[in-house]
């Protein structure tokens, strides 16, 4: 399916940034917005707030499309980081300090090998995540869905803290193994 192909979304981003192509933007919206909304609602936002954040994030995607660098992150990772920051900003009313930018040459053409490597890794990561045993996958999801610490995850799932930590570690080890 073209939606699972990271290269397809990189092409849509290029059409947005170079041609200001609204059709490409609508395609991106239709794929990412419902997933982002669901992610935000599972993180505790209500329907109206989730849609407000989706609208903000997708508008930022349009405005900052020229800053997207396909050798640094996949489109889903890039959109995720924008959504995460907006969530911290709106729900917690806190800033999220970001690391200093690396000194990139702005004129640098993306290296094709890096680009393909990152696309393949992103695809592998998606497959590896869905292949995790359900209990491990749920814990990884919970860690990303909310302002849940390991302690709070324990309270919600009724699992002891040590088990949570070792399951998350196991899940991350499996993901790493699947990537290498």
């Amino acid at each position: 399916m073209k939606e699972d192909n990271h290269g397809y979304w990189i092409d849509q981003m290029r059409r947005i940034s170079e041609n200001r192509d609204e059709d490409a933007f609508v395609a991106l919206f239709q794929h990412f917005a419902p997933r982002m909304k669901s992610f935000l609602m599972r993180s505790g936002s209500d329907n109206a707030l989730a849609e407000e954040i989706v609208q903000d994030v997708m508008t930022t995607v349009w405005r900052k499309a020229h800053l997207f660098n396909p050798t640094r992150a996949s489109v889903s990772t890039w959109i995720y980081t924008i959504a995460r920051n907006r969530r911290v900003d709106l729900i917690r009313r806190q800033k999220r300090p970001e690391p200093e930018d690396l000194p990139w040459g702005p004129e640098q053409e993306p290296d094709q090998t890096d680009l393909i490597g990152l696309q393949q890794e992103s695809e592998q990561l998606g497959v590896a995540l869905s292949a995790l045993p359900e209990k491990q996958r749920i814990l990884i999801e919970k860690a990303y869905f909310g302002d849940l610490s390991h302690g709070e995850i324990a309270a919600e799932t009724g699992l002891p803290l040590g088990t949570i930590k070792s399951r998350i570690r196991l899940a991350l080890d499996r993901l790493r193994h699947a990537m290498s």
Binding site: F32, A33, P34, R35, M36, K37, S38, F39, M41, R42, A50, E51, V54, A73, S74, S76, T77, W78, I79, Y80, T81, A83, R84, E121, S122, L125, G126, L129, S130, I140, E141, Y144, F145, L172, L175
Partner: peptide
């Protein structure tokens, strides 16, 4: 870890957007 977050987000079941 950001890439894991991106993968988690897109693997979430889609919610209808108005």
């Amino acid at each position: 870890y950001d890439a894991v977050g991106g993968a988690v987000m897109v693997s979430t079941d889609a919610a209808p957007v108005s």
